[in-house]
Computed example of a mutant assay.
Amino acid sequence: MTLLREAFLDRVRERGEYDTQQEAERAARVVLALLGAHLVGEERAELAARLPETYALVLLSPLQAAEPLSAERFVRATAAWIEGATDETAKWDVGAVFSSVADAAGESLTRRVLLQLPVGYDLLFGHPEPTV
């Protein structure tokens, strides 16, 4: 495992308070795949460039959302993809991954990413402030 990947996963594991690296890995993969389906263009590519290669490839997977999910529906979709998850645990998973992504992205890129997403994602990213 590369140092960059390990550091990112450690951050997700710490923030998600996961018992194992595998739990953090599962959350990161599911959340980034769903996020990637909602982003387009320069922001998607720039965000991928700031993530470890493994997770950049997940973010860039060819999934494309039919319609943008509200923050609440994003959390529900995450719960549906993680075995045994509830909406509450999925919200925790999303927050752990998104806050780690925001750290990797930096403030400017995080703001631009949030502009592509429906209202409400700012809280999931740990940035409860207007993005406009």
Rank of each mutant, 00 (worst) to 15 (best):
D10F: 15
R11Y: 04
E14F: 12
E14A: 14
R15I: 07
Y18S: 08
D19T: 12
D19H: 12
E25C: 05
A27P: 11
A28F: 06
A33N: 12
A33T: 10
G41L: 06
G41D: 02
G41A: 03
E42L: 15
E42T: 12
A45L: 14
E46N: 10
E46L: 10
L47S: 05
A48V: 09
R50L: 11
L51A: 04
Y55P: 00
Y55F: 06
A56G: 10
L57T: 11
V58H: 01
V58A: 03
L59Y: 02
L59K: 08
L59S: 00
Q64P: 00
E67N: 13
P68A: 15
P68K: 08
P68L: 15
L69G: 04
S70M: 05
A71K: 02
E72F: 13
E72K: 15
R73E: 13
R76E: 13
R76S: 13
T78H: 03
A79L: 00
A79T: 01
A80T: 14
A80V: 12
A80Q: 14
I82M: 15
I82D: 03
T86K: 01
D87P: 09
T89M: 05
W92K: 15
F98A: 01
F98N: 03
V101A: 02
V101M: 01
D103W: 04
E107W: 04
S108M: 10
S108V: 14
V113Y: 00
V113Q: 00
L114N: 08
L115G: 06
L115W: 04
L115M: 11
Q116L: 05
L117M: 04
V119W: 14
Y121C: 04
F125Y: 02
F125W: 04
H127R: 13
E129K: 10
E129F: 10
